[in-house]
Structure formats: structure tokens, C-alpha cells
Design a binder for these strands. Structure first.
Lengths: 232, 232
DNA sequence: CCAAAAGTGTTTTCTCTACACCCATGT
DNA sequence: ACATGGGTGTAGAGAAAACACTTTTGG
């Protein structure tokens, strides 16, 4: 039962698992920061911060991401709240994790550098402080699920992308090889992609057609009971 | 970036969405309480309470459930954290919701009564305080997903149950009619149910065989890469 | 013997998977 | 002309869905 007076108060933080995808080396990456203060100074951690008096958790997460990357209006999703008493050796801190999907090429390099942020491939992460590795694991598990049932993969790609690149993204996240013909049939049959009159010519002589995701179509299909489903 | 000193502190609460299932009227229910204090005294709400200094969020949720129902070792799962600044008009409170699946017949009636707790069918819920309706909605959505991919339905049934009862539970949660033959074939083919030498004779002359869920089998199958999947 | 609920198989449809060759182009 | 990556269709297997009658037994 809630009794407002005399109820204890707690430090509440938000930690951001910032995913990016590099179309060139075909790897899913995390934006990590070198912690600049005690405890655990110099160790790798997620981008985090305390929740202020007059901001919601969502706002805190957006603020932290903005300060680190200069990005607004990014796909972010709350993931889990970590509340063990001793999870942070500095003090009792309750922390809610959010994951963000960003277009890696859009971030403000200068800002990121100032804050000691670095991209690290998900397959070779350094040791992280506290329970941050667990946060990453949980977020990655959710991303793997989400990408099959919601068109969130496009948040990680440039506006225009080729079907090869899209497939490589799915392979990087699902960590398995996908059949090219089956993949293309499935994604194209949803009618969510718009074929552009332009080719990507850097990686092959023939060139690959660019596509882009059509959000309007997706939203109108969704209103009619359509469900995204890429069962890869 | 975290700066421990001078960071603001917040009231942190836990709210429990307590699901129960009545095999007789075949309805999914919620255990709600009449709030005994201001603000919103006399209104319906979820069971909640503030997180103490020396307990984790999980422990707080278990404590609240125990105090209300007398039950321990119940299936509980964290669902979402609600952090809008003005969600509680009494003060700024950040609240993490947990849902619990309990066997309705096991609760301590006396304790529940003292605390003003009442079962209400999910289909005809009263208006709830604050954002509690939203909490219920989100928890129910997750339950609908979970019940298809994890054997959590059994948490809501008595130890021994008939296949008819199990199907009715699925129909109540998924809110749709399920084909009897397909349902039985799927659930039995997983080899998780043990047929008992006893019949339920109250609802029919022929009687229906009792079954029980075999947790050991489930765990050993799970270790071998088996996934529960009742695609209803 | 009849009412009421439990229990039981088969066919059809659809979805998923596996698989190999031609195309376009820059050098 | 050839090397390189892009693009394309079909057949077979397995899963899901649709469907109706028989069994049991208390009264």
C-alpha cells in the first residue's frame, strides 16, 4: 500500500544501448563510452545518466542520446528496469534501459568524440561495468525478436539501401545465413519497399537497385490489420 | 553521464497486475483493490507499494503479492516502467509494473478481504486510477504473447486440469474460439502433459480425464533446444 | 433410451525450405 | 572475354486449418 510521506527515495538512471550498423563491414555495433569518473573510471559502459526532477524516463533517454550523438527523433524503446540493490557499487541506483537504433552515418562525430564514445562490434564487446553486459544481452534478444515482426531494421540503414544490404543486416542481427531468393520474395511481397531508379555501383559492376522503405504504406496496411512478418 | 552527488532522488513504486482464472465461469480475472488513502481514495487500483531501501524491484513485487494473497513462489514477470512526471497526481512516482499468474483457489481469502481486494473479470473492468488501465493493457498484451511460446498457462490452472479446461483458458486469454482437435493434437504432441487415472465428473456424465503439467520434462526438453509453441 | 459433453483422423491448403543458373557491366 | 556480384523460379516437405461423427454414462 502506498504511503507517500516517509517513503524512501532512490537514484534513478537511464542507460542507453545504442545500436548502429555498418553496411561496409556488415557488423552490428554498439556505441560505448569510456567512463570518466568513479566508480569504475576508465572502464567501458553504456551511455547513461540520472533521471531529472522534471523529465520522464523517455525524455531522459532521449536527452542522453541527443547529448552523445546530436540525434533527435530516433527509434528508442524501453527494454527493462534493473533494480537489484547492489547492482551499482557506488550507490543504490535503479536503472531503466532503452535501446536505440540509429543510422551510424548520421551521428555528430565531434560530440561523440568529446564524450569518449566509440563504436564496438557486437561480436567483440569489451567487458562492461556493473550489469551493463546483461542489459546488452537482453536488448539484443529483444531486437532479434522485433526485427522479425516490426520493420525496425530500416532504422539502422541509410534512407536508400539495396536488397543485398538489407539481407546482410538481417544476417548480422539474426546471426545466420539467409537464403537470398526466399528473403527477397518475402520482403518484396509485403509491398513496403519502393524501388528507386538508381543503382549502387560501388560493390559490383552490374550494380544493385536502391530501394527505400515506404512508411505511409506500412501505416495504412497496419490500420487494415496487416502484420509485418519476416520469418527468417 | 552519471554524477552521484546532487543527483535527484525519486519515489519508486511497484504495481502488480494479478491475473487469475476461474475454471467455472471461464473468465480471466484481475485482483484489484479499493484504494484506502488519498489521493483517489475509494477508487479501484492495482496492488502497489513503494520500493524500500534494501529490497530489489523483484523483491518489492513479491512482497506486495505476499501481503495481499499470502502466496509465495508465484510466477511473476516485470513488464514495463512508467515514468511520466505527472502520472500520479500525489507526487512524482516512477512505477514498475509486474504481472503475476496465480491459482485463484490458492489465495488467502481473509488477507485479501482485509486489504479490500476483489476479483474482477478482465472483460468488465472498472475504471482504474492513474495509468493503471494502461498497465493492465500492456500486461495483457504480453500475456497473450507469452502464453503461446511459454507454458505459463498452467500457472493459472489447478494442479490437475482437463484438456477442455486448458483449452477454455487459452480461449479466454486469446479471446477467440480454438478448434478442439487441432488444440489437443498440438498440446499433446509436445509430451509435456501427464494423463492421470482420474476423471473430472462434475461437468459431464462421461467425465474428462485429468492431466497435469510435467515441469521436469519441460526443463529437460528446453535444455535440448525445444521451444514451446502453441500457435493458436 | 436420451441428453450432454468428451474424445478422435483425414484431407486440403498454405507456408517454408532447398536449390542453380543467367544477367549486366567495367576492365 | 571474363570476372564479379546481382538477380530470378520451381518443386517438395511439413505445418496449419478445416471439418463431423462416435463414445460414455447418469438419469
Amino acid at each position: 500500500m502506498k504511503i507517500y510521506a516517509n517513503a524512501p527515495k532512490h537514484l534513478v538512471a537511464v542507460d542507453c544501448i545504442i545500436f548502429g550498423y555498418d553496411i561496409h563491414d556488415k557488423e552490428l555495433k554498439l556505441l560505448l563510452i569510456k567512463r570518466g569518473f568513479e566508480p569504475a573510471k576508465g572502464k567501458w559502459s553504456l551511455a547513461g545518466g540520472f533521471v531529472r526532477e522534471n523529465e520522464s524516463l523517455d525524455q531522459a533517454a532521449s536527452r542522453i542520446l541527443l547529448n552523445l550523438t546530436g540525434l533527435k527523433n530516433v527509434y528508442m524503446k524501453q527494454n527493462y528496469t534493473y533494480g537489484d540493490v547492489d547492482r551499482d557499487p557506488g550507490a543504490r541506483v535503479i536503472s531503466t534501459s532503452y535501446y536505440a537504433l540509429i543510422k551510424i552515418q548520421n551521428i555528430d562525430q565531434h560530440l561523440a568524440e568529446i564524450n569518449g564514445a566509440h563504436w564496438r562490434p557486437i561480436s567483440r564487446l569489451p567487458e562492461l561495468i556493473f550489469d551493463h553486459s546483461q542489459m546488452v544481452e537482453r536488448a539484443l534478444a529483444e531486437l532479434k525478436n522485433q526485427i522479425k515482426i516490426k520493420p525496425v531494421g530500416f532504422e539502422l540503414l541509410p534512407e536508400n539501401f539495396t536488397l543485398v544490404q538489407l539481407q546482410e543486416l538481417y544476417e548480422a542481427i539474426c546471426q545466420r545465413k539467409i537464403d537470398k531468393r526466399n528473403f527477397r520474395r518475402k520482403i518484396l511481397s509485403m509491398n513496403l519497399l519502393e524501388k528507386l531508379n538508381e543503382k549502387e555501383k560501388l560493390t559490383s559492376r552490374k550494380g544493385a537497385w536502391y530501394y527505400k522503405f515506404n512508411l505511409e504504406k506500412y501505416q495504412s496496411f497496419t490500420r487494415n490489420g496487416f502484420y509485418f512478418n519476416l520469418n527468417v
